[in-house]
Design a protein around this nucleic acid. Structure first.
Length: 259
RNA sequence: GACUCAAUGUCUGU
């Protein structure tokens, strides 16, 4: 059983869908009876390889599901859609089992994507009842939900109440302020944040671009210590969104092949 | 308290 889990974790790391399917088939052919851990890892492998549908088939066949099984499917729908399905599963699971911090951080992005502020606030209440309000990952997911729902007051409250803010907390706030057009406040956070990673730079660049500040976006793009494929795409579309076609073309030609 | 098979932020598209 743990051999299967290790194998599947290799598939997850390599995003190897065919290999995951092969292992799945192999289990069936040999009459191996996977336990709940193997099923969960198999479903996760399918999700990470981009096939939520295959993960769902595994999930539906499981006769025993634990909180991990539910949480992984909820997160999968939150990330890949349909987002409604994440909320439906979240409701369903509670007929059988208690959600935990993984479940809550998995379901929040669906509320954010759907801009379902009321629903998000209801789950926030539930998070408080379960005592997860101060949990770092859950708080990040919560403030991001409020930011995506254009409710920066509540996002800020969560942010200010956190005992430990990490790079995710700061970046989610920056994105929220940028999307509401509060460019100066976003920039203030960017300057104040204790550490930045490539995602924080990318988010700020994209935010400037969406608000028409191409010059600032270019400045950050040139200043940033590392660029990834998201940085290049963000900068190319920064030019595109603001009607600077030759800039977009020039960057496209400069973009390293390795991305 | 920590860990486990599952969780949160950035571009484009869906």
């Amino acid at each position: 059983s743990s051999a299967y889990i290790s194998l599947l974790q290799c598939c997850i790391q390599k995003r190897a869908l065919q290999e995951a399917k092969f292992i799945h088939t192999h289990m069936n052919k040999t009459g191996f009876k996977p336990d709940i851990l193997v099923y969960n890892t198999l479903a996760t492998a399918y999700v990470k390889c981009g096939s939520v549908a295959d993960a769902r088939k595994v999930f539906d066949k499981m006769t025993n599901r634990n909180v991990c099984s539910w949480s992984l499917m909820i997160s999968a729908y939150s990330r890949h859609g349909p987002h409604r399905e994440a909320l439906d599963l979240f409701r369903q699971m509670q007929n059988y089992i208690e959600p935990n911090h993984y479940t809550f951080s998995g379901v929040m992005p669906a509320c954010g994507e759907l801009k379902m502020l009321e629903q998000g606030m209801e789950i926030h209440e539930q998070i408080i009842r379960y005592g997860y309000e101060r949990h770092g990952v859950v708080a990040n997911a919560l403030l991001d939900m409020y930011a995506k729902c254009a409710c920066m007051e509540n996002a800020r409250k969560v942010f200010d109440n956190m005992s430990q803010r990490d790079v995710v907390s700061w970046t989610a706030m920056i994105v929220g302020y940028m999307q509401q057009g509060f460019v100066d406040e976003a920039r203030r956070l960017f300057d104040e944040m204790p550490q930045r990673d490539v995602a924080s730079w990318n988010a700020t660049i994209a935010g400037y671009a969406q608000n028409g500040f191409v010059v600032e976006a270019v400045r950050l793009f040139e200043e940033m210590p590392q660029r990834d494929v998201v940085s290049w795409n963000a900068m190319i579309s920064a030019y595109g969104q603001n009607g600077i076609v030759d800039g977009a073309l020039r960057l496209f030609r400069e973009m390293p092949e390795r991305n």
